[in-house]
């Protein structure tokens, strides 16, 4: 009996170890980022593991949420979106936590041009690793087809600047971006890439248990790429849908409340199939 119990525990331990070590991702999600005409835009901001509808974490509140709007070569304009941020509960199959929603009225996003949405969460304390994390996330949308500032740095402590229109990608396109810290390229930056395999359900505020991808191995869940000597990363997009890029520990903040701190830059892009 004892032996059996021991075996069971050993098995559990092995199973626990085998739970894929997927990446933390600050998700900034709205269903469509290439719009013909401006309309109400419904957002969800969730700190989770999007490839596996995994553990959802408390992001430590919201510091900033805004959009930098630009049409053509006109001057970029900042639109504060904090008045629209609401606290919600986000529920994944095995985990639930505080997250945020924002319903942006059409009048804010009706003009043709690029909207670079910037979401700055608070600090999340990762107990297991004894460190704080903050993922500053960008999502770039376009209304009406007139491009604007999609390839311009916002001027964040750290950010990923795309070199390919992040809202206009075909499946199979190569994503290219530059990792910046305080405006300067980060040579050799480590960047994690994940696919949103569990599409967010906005009415239920959660992700479904069913994945759209079968991962043959842990290493396929979170892919890792490194920036070159000029801070550029490239990544071929193999499947239509949402892809998240997180450049780890590239921000200038390295300590918070006497603990180690990882200030990361996140960018989301969407690819569609050529039909």
């Amino acid at each position: 009996m004892k032996k059996g119990l021991f075996a069971a525990f050993a098995l559990l331990a092995v199973v626990a170890m085998a739970i894929p070590a997927s990446a933390h991702f600050m998700m900034v999600y709205t269903p469509e980022i290439a719009l013909d005409k401006g309309k109400d835009m419904d957002f969800r901001m969730v700190f989770t593991h999007p490839a596996e509808a995994g553990h959802t974490m408390n992001m430590g509140g919201v510091k900033e949420f805004y959009a930098m709007f630009q049409r053509g070569d006109s001057k970029a304009k900042k639109i504060d979106l904090m008045p629209y941020v609401k606290e919600i509960k986000w529920t994944n199959p095995e985990s639930s936590n505080t997250a945020y929603s924002a319903m942006l009225p059409k009048k804010l996003v009706r003009s043709m041009g690029d909207y670079t949405f910037v979401f700055v969460p608070g600090y999340y304390y990762e107990e297991e690793e004894g460190l704080y994390m903050q993922q500053i996330a960008k999502l770039i949308a376009n209304v009406g087809g007139i491009p604007g500032n999609w390839a311009e740095p916002v001027g964040l402590p750290c950010e990923i600047v795309p070199l390919i229109k992040p809202y206009g990608m075909w499946t199979g396109n190569v994503f290219k971006g530059q990792i910046l810290s305080q405006g300067k390229p980060v040579p050799g930056a480590e960047v994690e890439v994940e696919y949103m395999s569990h599409m967010p359900n906005l009415s239920k505020n959660g992700m479904p248990a069913k994945s759209s991808v079968n991962y043959p191995h842990d290493c396929m869940v979170t892919q890792t790429i490194f920036a070159d000597a000029q801070g550029y990363v490239t990544f071929g997009i193999p499947k239509a849908g949402w892809w998240g890029f997180a450049a780890l520990g590239v921000g200038p903040m390295t300590e918070y409340k006497g603990k180690e701190m990882s200030q990361d830059a996140v960018l989301w892009v969407k690819a569609v199939d050529m039909k």
């Binding site: 070569d73 043709m112 009406g144 087809g145 007139i146 491009p147």
Partner: peptide, 22 residues
């Protein structure tokens, strides 16, 4: 590209541009 909005005060605003950003 050109799009217009009714401002609700008896005026209309049109915005224009080109697909290459000009």
């Amino acid at each position: 590209l050109c799009d217009c909005f009714d401002n609700g005060d008896g005026t209309v605003t049109c915005e224009g541009g080109f697909s290459d950003g000009s």
